[in-house]
Amino acid sequence: MSAQNPEPSRSGAAADIEGSSGAGGIVDDEAAAEQRHREQELKREALNRELARLPMTDLGNVERFRKRFGDQFKWSKALGWFFWDGKRWSRDGAEARVRIASHETVRAIQDEAKALRDIALGLSQEHDIVPGEIAKARKDFEKQYKTKKDQAAGRLQLVHDADDPDVAAKAEKKRKAKADKEARFKRVIKVLFLHMDAGALADWGKASEMNSKMTPIDGHAAPYLATQIEAFDADPWMINVNNGTLFVDKALPGMIGFKPHDPTDLITKISPVNYDPRAGCPVFDAFLKRAQPDEDNRRFVIDWLGYSLA
């Protein structure tokens, strides 16, 4: 009897390719994670630029809170605060989470100030504006516009002109020294205002960390995030479990559907189990088969039990 042929060995190249497939998967996962991280960073930067333009007032901070955390909290006059825990709207620890979110809101004002400084830096690099020009522009601006009222009006006009393409086009067309100087002054003054606003915003952020400034955020934000108590758990045909939500839909086979948790469902309850459509219940099935040998009777009992749970 001839000996059994051994399994042919894989070539080095084939082994290298197969061995690298796992590493390639890891690299792909890391690249995808890096891409998601970058997208999140871009969203945060855009949000910081947007919020940096909000008023430096208590209500401005309330609006900051709503923009940053409005999708994570609900408030009910009857029951107080709820927070979205990823599966349901929960009251457990909601008050503390709102307070923490308030703290994070005012701390993030420093990020908003940095966003303004970054814009100013970009403009400075684009137009070769040096710090000395900014300091001189500030001195000239304060000399020309002495009162706060005049400065506010002057800022509006100067920023408008700096952004107006017609003004820039006329300055470019004339190419006169005076026009060029004025156009550059307006660019410099725009950078100056960004730095001034960034400084004022940073100071406001520090002042907002006082308890007297943070406390109004909770109270003033509540009406904007208010939800009627009747809106919670309004659909009796939804059952929330650990890994998603079961729902009744007559258009589906078996009339039962399953979907990811959704905050718009406004569910506050959850059953601490995982739904598995392939799971069986052998002990119950065996008992029911002994108690009701007839299949039609077993189906009736199961339907009756289901109606009893409603």
Rank of each mutant, 00 (worst) to 15 (best):
R278E: 15
K173P: 05
E95R: 11
S11K: 15
D218M: 10
T227N: 05
E18Y: 13
A94G: 04
R175I: 05
E112D: 10
L156Y: 15
Y275E: 06
P253W: 05
M1T: 12
S90A: 11
D164E: 07
D140G: 03
K174A: 13
R88K: 08
G254F: 03
F284T: 13
A231P: 00
I134T: 07
S2H: 13
G219N: 10
T268E: 10
R49L: 07
N297D: 15
W84Q: 02
R88Q: 11
E34V: 12
I129G: 03
L121Q: 15
Y275C: 04
E34M: 14
A183F: 13
P260C: 06
A135F: 03
A169F: 11
K136L: 08
S76W: 08
P131D: 00
A231N: 06
F185A: 09
A96P: 07
R36N: 08
I217T: 01
L116H: 00
S271W: 14
Q40N: 07
I267Y: 01
L121N: 14
V167M: 11
S2R: 12
G199C: 09
F141G: 04
K269I: 15
R88M: 09
K213H: 14
R298C: 00
L194G: 06
S124F: 00
L201Y: 08
L121P: 03
K67N: 07
V188L: 05
A162M: 11
K176E: 14
R99C: 06
R99D: 12
I109T: 05
E182L: 11
K250W: 05
E41M: 09
G60H: 01
A3H: 13
D276H: 03
E30Y: 15
G280F: 02
A101L: 02
L192S: 11
K174C: 10
Q40L: 10
A101G: 06
T268A: 03
L266N: 03
A310T: 06
D235K: 07
F82I: 03
R117D: 01
F232N: 00
F287C: 09
E50L: 08
D235C: 04
H195G: 10
P277R: 02
L59I: 09
D16P: 11
R155A: 05
T245M: 15
A52Y: 00
Y224W: 15
R184T: 04
D58H: 06
Y145G: 01
E230T: 04
F65M: 02
Y307L: 08
Y275H: 02
D265A: 08
E142Y: 08
A310G: 03
A113T: 02
A169G: 10
A231D: 13
R184I: 07
E18A: 12
A94S: 08
G306Q: 00
K148A: 12
H37F: 13
Q151C: 00
K74R: 13
D71K: 15
